[in-house]
Design a protein around this nucleic acid. Sequence first.
DNA 1: CAACTTCATTGCGTATTGTGCAATGGCAGC
DNA 2: GCTGCCATTGCACAATACGCAATGAAGTTG
Lengths: 262, 262
Amino acid sequence: MAQSIRRAIDLIRRSAEHPLSLTEAADVLGVHKSTALRILQTLESARFVRRTGAGTYVLGSGLIELSELALGSMDLRQPAAAHLRALQRETGHTVHLAQLTGDEIIYIDKVDSPAFDAVKLPSRIGRAVSIYASAVGKTILAYLPREERDRLLSHVVFERFTATTFTDHDALEAELARIHERGWAVDNGEHDAYVMCVAAPIRDSRGQVIAAASITAIEVIASLDQLKSNVPLLLETANQISYELGYPQPSANPDGDGRSTT
Amino acid sequence: MAQSIRRAIDLIRRSAEHPLSLTEAADVLGVHKSTALRILQTLESARFVRRTGAGTYVLGSGLIELSELALGSMDLRQPAAAHLRALQRETGHTVHLAQLTGDEIIYIDKVDSPAFDAVKLPSRIGRAVSIYASAVGKTILAYLPREERDRLLSHVVFERFTATTFTDHDALEAELARIHERGWAVDNGEHDAYVMCVAAPIRDSRGQVIAAASITAIEVIASLDQLKSNVPLLLETANQISYELGYPQPSANPDGDGRSTT
DNA sequence: CAACTTCATTGCGTATTGTGCAATGGCAGC
DNA sequence: GCTGCCATTGCACAATACGCAATGAAGTTG
């Protein structure tokens, strides 16, 4: 079912990665060139793809516009932006903002470290993050109401990415309890061996943790201990963002677990 | 032809604007609910839309990810980002970066003025800008090789948006000549009566103008003359970005018109 | 607590729609 | 000017997506 739509989606995907000639498009889909042409023409009329001068197709501005519209309507992004950028300047490391959106945690903002842009982190706005093998994921999990947390974890199949990955439910629960008590989380290369993070929770006006901010660095640049020295700044930033969202006390003590509310 | 793809595109659009119930989706397309359901399921499997808890559909993270991928591959965005943010801080106004992409000029970055976010500008990343009724549009046009400029303008039907809009070809040509000589452009409320801009060209390594940076303010906040006082800073920023792209002289004098090259 | 309403979901037969083929047109290179 | 390459279009056919109607789930009201 929905074969033509699937094909269109496939072409959108490919065109985002690199320019796509008509012949390539037809080959990729395994259809006749005329079919590929018609699909691309339809997508072009919606500005989802665009023809380059060379006759190849690339992702169009219509899609980018839609995506920005959706990102812009996320209440969190706008008030957080300035704080995240300040945090980046103060620490010098890459800063992420991740939000629980439906069943997945996705990056909704990212401030690159200007100094080390030779080393590209695999993160990208819009991409889903592992909920059990990332500092932001564990942070959000740690503060989620139990039922919600169980719902998210029930979908999960644990996979070992590196030596430090938490791969069983009980160990993860213990880690989450530690995080909840301490008020912030660490990613000690749990997804990519050389990527370190610290993350702190962000609360909405009801006190519910809905997002997390993190500072990321690769091992070559900073050790985990060096990153940890930035935790006070990170907590302050997270609290300021929570404050902007209407959470009452912009103080540094992370009590009030949000489990009781709703 | 390509009816089902059109329908899918329509649903993507709507879901980006506001959450869409299945019934609504079917009504909008004028099809049976079962049809709308199948389209949405297909889109959901590609993470182009996402089901909320309430059973409505919103734009999914898959699309946002693709869009960021495409934006990230634009060479201009990354090196320009820091300069644009610095310019925003120094001037206090909203800063835009627009690029000629195919036949249209689209915003590829935007730095909001944090102070006045009550007033939302209509601009948005990914959105196409009028090429004859905006400072960035006129700037890019002014420095384009003649044949390229003619090609772009041949598609255009002039429309009067405000009292100051240039609505005939000759008047626009005169304005472009002025801009080319002076090295920067002004938008005196030519698209929206209360929106003022100044813009400066950005060159790639071949000396070709491919983009423009602009400072925007609404009349309530700054007069056009006040904006103009920021022109030296703007020119400096644009030149720095050009320099990062490989354009040889980061000096302030905007000679060398790029018409002779290629 | 049962009957009713509302909404999502699925199986199925049919006709619309999208497909492949082959022919046409445009363009560049020899 | 001929030849090969690629995009594009008309057409006939069959696959595909459609609407219908029945089922199921979930919440509401008497």
